[in-house]
Design a protein around this nucleic acid. Structure first.
Lengths: 293, 293
DNA sequence: TAAAAATACTCCATAGGTATTTTAT
DNA sequence: ATAAAATACCTATGGAGTATTTTTA
């Protein structure tokens, strides 16, 4: 095993062609350089330098070792540069998990902005239901998770409130209730509703909100995605309740309307989850600034 | 600048996947490993390992650094192996200088043997006159010089007696003196002689020997190489005096004969020369064993 | 509760400094 | 006479050990 500290000094001696100039370059004394090279020669059991009147000249072994040393230290620089790239976010990886509403409707534009800022960072977005995403977080497949379901911190995972989400009742533009401006929750009783599948975070919040107000609706259809629900509502199959974030485009293009139900404000907390004490990558730290908290 | 001692420990931690196993491999304590990695992380200003229940897992930076470390230490091994090859004479270089007689007639067969023993060593044989060869020795172009001329040690160069050389009078097989068995030096007086050029070591020794015995010969021709002299003598142009070593083949093929002149034994010292205090390569050390002293 | 990592302390060999001597031109 | 390298001697600290505590599955 080579003593690389000594080798480093030796390499400078070769570069400078003399012990004293190497000492200067290294900001140590000539004495220290002299002993370092001697010690290296002793450890290797072979002379490396011929001490001539004008400076030093490598022996065959010395020249050979010098060339290898050059490569070793060149590679050291490559390693440092690679770490700097990571530090400066010129390269890296960011793996985010999100439950579907967040992953599909909220994150993409933010990820776009992030990518414009840090084009060298590879982005991974893992979309699944809350349980899946939390599982991926625990098994270190993602570094942060965004979820809508009611999850709680535990000893491994820390949950941080992220932002509020508002759910609205949606209808087709030609729905009987679409023009009403004086709607109250009671008007929804027995209305046909299109729902997400059981287990969906959105459905859970929706059912709680309606149940809390004693409103029983009529389920006409259960669908596995928000997109499908929106299509069904747009086609006039019934009403539904979805996150504001998911219908921006449909409101603009007048394919859906949001009903303004006076006493039915449904809000929920969107959360960010981390593994406790897990060191955060620089890429994540910058993402958190951009994504709010 | 990376602390490569710490990096070496860190690399073992990655290989072993845990601090305590790394400590075992390194024959140091777990405590030391723990502190080494912490110090490396401190110096780089970034965490490298996530400490999990079952051992450790590298962060992105940690994995990146680990890969570079692998290459750095792999290259260290390459360097060590290269030095070992040099040490074991599996590679290397041997530069020998010799004055012409030695270089042409004595060294080649020995170099052949050396090459069979150490096929990895590159051989360089620099043939010139004594002055040229000694100059190349002083300017470090060759590591050892073999010369015939009367050279003396000085403060830079050390001359060591190598072996004796005997010079003999040669003639064409049909020369009038060729059959005589009772020759004495006086019989050579006024005989036609073929000589090497002035400055040749052989010519110098020859002239001294004849002059010492008061014998004046007749110069019929001066030639620039021993080969040319032999050709001329063989063609019957006259006698000459050359080293035994140079005429083995001609004696065997009866193209020349050596005259047995009772009172004319001409011996000279062949010498080996080195630059004082210059470290000797392993390749040279082995050569000296093979070449005698 | 057991295994791994971190921490507190102690020690010393190494790598450095200063001062001087030796070597080579 | 000068400049470079080697050497002698001294010092400080980084890297190691032991013992113990903390952490986590």
């Amino acid at each position: 095993m080579l003593n690389l500290n000594l080798l480093r000094i030796y390499r400078v001696v070769l570069d400078q062609g003399s012990f004293s100039r190497a000492a200067e370059t290294l900001s140590i004394t000539q004495s220290a350089v002299s002993r370092a090279v001697q010690e290296l020669e002793r450890q290797l059991g072979m002379p490396l330098l011929e001490r001539r009147a004008r400076g030093v000249v490598p022996t065959e072994a010395g020249a050979l070792l010098g060339e290898h040393a050059r490569r070793i230290f060149a590679h050291e620089q490559v390693a440092l540069e690679a770490l700097n790239e990571l530090r400066d976010l010129r390269r890296g990886r960011l793996s985010i998990g999100a439950s579907s509403t967040i992953g599909i409707y909220l994150l993409p534009s933010m990820l776009g902005e992030y990518h414009r800022l840090y084009p060298g960072i590879e982005l991974f977005l893992d979309i699944g239901n809350t349980q899946q995403v939390m599982e991926h977080l625990r098994s270190y497949r993602i570094e942060v998770a965004y979820v809508e379901g009611p999850v709680a911190s535990d000893e491994h995972v820390q949950i941080v409130p992220w932002r509020d989400d508002e759910l609205v009742v949606i209808a087709a533009p030609d729905h009987p209730l679409a023009q009403r401006t004086d709607l109250v929750a009671a008007d929804l009783v027995a209305m046909p509703f299109v729902l997400r599948e059981p287990g969906s975070g959105t459905r859970e919040v929706m059912e709680q909100a309606l149940a809390a107000r004693g409103i029983a609706v009529r389920t006409v259809m259960e669908l596995g995605s928000t997109e499908a629900v929106k299509q069904a509502v747009s086609a006039g199959l019934g009403l539904s309740i979805v996150s504001w974030a998911t219908i921006q485009m449909e409101l603009d293009s007048a394919r859906l309307v949001a009903l303004d139900v006076a006493d039915l404000s449904i809000r929920r907390q969107l959360s960010r989850a981390h593994v406790r004490d897990r060191p955060q990558s620089r890429a994540l730290q910058e993402w958190l600034k951009l994504a709010g908290r």
